[in-house]
Amino acid sequence: MPIVTIQQFPRPLEQKRELARRITQAFAEVYGAEEASVQVFFSEVDGEDWAKGGVMGCDRKPE
């Protein structure tokens, strides 16, 4: 039973649906796994729960 965990900034539901579909398809093709056995977990983090280089995401200037 493949389990995939994705950590990311919040994304629209439609994008997550498409990504989950493609990841599931890839595991089925490469590993020969049953699509129904592939689990994808999305862990979304906002700028108040993430830092880079010691600076909180909500305090960073756009790059």
Rank of each mutant, 00 (worst) to 15 (best):
M1T: 14
M1Q: 08
M1E: 05
M1H: 06
P2K: 07
I3C: 01
I3P: 00
V4C: 10
T5Q: 15
T5V: 13
I6D: 00
I6H: 01
Q7V: 14
Q7R: 13
Q7K: 14
Q7F: 11
Q8K: 10
F9A: 15
P10D: 06
R11K: 14
R11F: 02
R11G: 00
P12E: 15
L13I: 15
L13W: 00
L13D: 12
L13V: 15
E14G: 02
E14S: 11
E14I: 03
E14F: 02
Q15I: 05
K16P: 00
K16T: 09
K16Q: 13
R17K: 15
R17Q: 14
E18T: 12
A20Y: 00
A20R: 02
R21Q: 14
R21L: 07
R21I: 01
R21N: 06
R22C: 09
R22A: 11
R22I: 09
R22S: 02
I23W: 00
I23V: 15
I23F: 01
T24R: 04
T24F: 05
T24G: 14
Q25S: 14
Q25I: 04
A26M: 05
F27T: 01
F27Y: 15
F27A: 04
A28W: 02
A28G: 03
A28L: 03
A28H: 07
V30S: 03
Y31G: 02
A33Y: 05
A33F: 08
A33C: 13
A33H: 04
E34N: 08
E35N: 01
A36I: 00
A36E: 13
A36S: 13
A36D: 11
S37Q: 05
S37C: 11
S37Y: 05
V38Q: 10
Q39M: 13
Q39Y: 03
V40Y: 05
V40D: 08
V40N: 08
F41D: 00
F42N: 03
S43I: 15
S43D: 04
E44C: 10
V45N: 01
V45A: 01
V45E: 04
D46H: 04
D46Y: 06
G47C: 10
E48Q: 11
D49V: 04
D49S: 15
D49L: 03
W50V: 07
W50N: 06
W50C: 04
W50A: 02
W50I: 10
K52A: 13
K52R: 10
K52L: 08
G54F: 01
G54N: 06
G54M: 06
V55M: 03
V55Q: 08
M56F: 06
G57M: 09
G57A: 09
G57N: 06
C58W: 04
C58N: 14
C58R: 14
C58A: 14
C58L: 03
D59S: 15
D59A: 15
R60G: 01
R60S: 08
K61D: 07
P62I: 00
E63H: 05
E63Y: 06
